[in-house]
Design a binder for these strands. Structure first.
Length: 403
RNA sequence: GUGGGAUUAGCUCAGUUGGUUAGAGCACUGGUUUGUGGUGCCGGGGGUCGCGGGUUCGAAUCCCGUAUCCCACCCCA
């Protein structure tokens, strides 16, 4: 038997219901905030991700589905959504057009990781990107949008917040952190040694207890922000306060992708295991420029749909539509005709086999129909049928023409 | 990529120190004596015990390999 590849799942039946319910809910919220749908290719030039996500990240360093295509192009399946949207934004010259551009997207992402609960090799994200606004109000807008989507899906969360600084304050901070960690280099874990070269900020969220105890006195980014970043962060907290969004400051929160600056946030759930981040995002004012566009401030987020699907509170399924059953073989033709007519407006379930009344009732329950009609010789002779309302236990006799 | 646990029917799981024809519940299917309320009752189909080797008179059971899932790390949404 041929099986799906490792870490790649089919979505069907109840999973599909949850999946589309989430997409529809999130789409609805995004549209209310004035965002427009964008679809970008699953396959992009590898350089796009190397330059945006950053070669230092594991995503680019070892998790990409990368290959040379028949035209000798170095391409890869997208590991995340932002880079493609930014590429499209620049390619359509919207950076030069100026103004505000707001997009949302959803679709498959690919990362060659070891699969685990909440971590697949092909997974789905819903994401949002906003271009052209440097006001921190837009950062808050993003966070409130995520909160709205989660609330609409009945999902509880914790919001973690940090500021990563900008080109003014981040480099100096990074240097002082490297200096600090270098001094206790002999005592930190191997991973942290590796991080020191690759992405020093990441040592801050090392899970090793010994490392954490060493870093207690490490310089904190949040205490080393320049005035502009400091002001924005203060303002952001105030906006969230006045809009009743609860958050916790996590000075160790760093984003895995290199392009983030200033606002960084992560929504986490305590109910889905160790892969607990259900949404993450932040500001990336320099990315458009990195990808050869005109400098454009931007902010966005992405949500992991598979992780959210476990948490979604689905609305109760209501009885819907008709079930029409035949009592004998002669009635089946009429059942099919009536179903065709009714399907112009309603969902109709039928079977192509005659059954007794009791078995039809079982079928009515199975398909969760609201109305039940039975067709036999009596109905064919009289030209009338009885429509039973299963919920209210009432019934109505009408002619076949009226049906 | 590292370490650990699991894998038996469509699903959730039993299966004794290795010993007849591998079971249950749910689901599916048929009947319940032939046209008015489904939940009852009786029956039926369905398994290469993940896959491949090995040990043994005999393997779902023990050993080795491998695949997948799960847990932790790592990473991240």
């Amino acid at each position: 038997m041929i099986k799906s590849l490792r870490g790649m799942n089919d979505i069907l039946s109840e999973d599909y219901e949850r999946f589309t319910y989430f997409i529809n809910t999130a789409t609805h919220v995004a549209q209310k905030y004035g965002f427009h749908f964008i679809e970008t290719p699953l396959l992009e030039e590898t350089a796009l991700f190397k330059r945006s996500v950053g070669a230092s990240s594991d995503i680019v360093g070892k998790e990409m589905y990368q290959f040379i295509d028949k035209g000798k192009n170095d391409v890869c399946l997208r590991p995340e959504g932002t880079a493609g949207v930014v590429r499209a934004f620049i390619q359509k010259k919207l950076d030069k057009a100026g103004g505000v551009h707001r997009f949302f997207y959803h679709g498959s992402m690919f990362r060659y990781e070891r699969p685990q609960k909440g971590r697949l090799r092909q997974f789905h994200q819903f994401g949002v990107e906003s271009f052209g606004i440097d006001s921190v109000y837009e950062d808050a807008n993003m966070i409130m949008m995520v909160a709205d989507i989660l609330v609409a899906c009945g999902i509880g969360y914790r919001l973690q917040l940090n500021s990563l600084g900008d080109a003014n304050c981040m480099p100096a901070y990074r240097e002082s952190l490297v200096h600090f960690v270098t001094q206790c280099k002999d005592e930190v874990c191997e991973d942290c040694i590796r991080r020191l070269d690759l992405n020093p900020i990441r040592v801050l969220d090392c899970k090793n207890e010994k490392c954490q105890s060493l870093y207690v006195n490490a310089p904190k980014l949040i205490n080393n922000l320049c005035q502009a970043c400091e002001n924005d962060f203060t303002k952001l907290k105030q906006i969230l306060d006045t809009n009743n969004i609860n958050y916790e400051i996590d000075t160790n929160l760093v984003r895995g992708l290199d392009y983030y600056s200033k606002t960084a946030f992560e929504f986490v759930s305590d109910n889905i295991g160790s892969q607990s981040a259900i949404a993450g995002g932040g500001r990336y004012d320099r990315l458009v420029e990195f990808l050869d566009g005109r400098p454009t401030p931007a902010v966005g987020f992405a949500m992991g749909i598979e992780r959210l699907m476990e948490l979604i509170q689905m609305p109760e399924v209501k009885k819907e539509g008709y079930y029409i059953g035949a009592l004998d073989e002669d009635a089946i033709d009429l059942v099919v005709q009536l179903a065709q007519k009714k399907r112009k407006t309603d969902k109709v379930n039928i079977e192509y086999k005659a059954k007794n009344f009791k078995n039809h009732m079982k079928a009515v329950d199975k398909v969760n129909a609201k109305y039940f009609c039975i067709i036999g010789s009596n109905e064919i002779q009289s030209g009338t049928i009885i429509v039973k309302d299963i919920e209210n236990k009432t019934e109505e006799k009408i002619t076949i023409q009226e049906f």
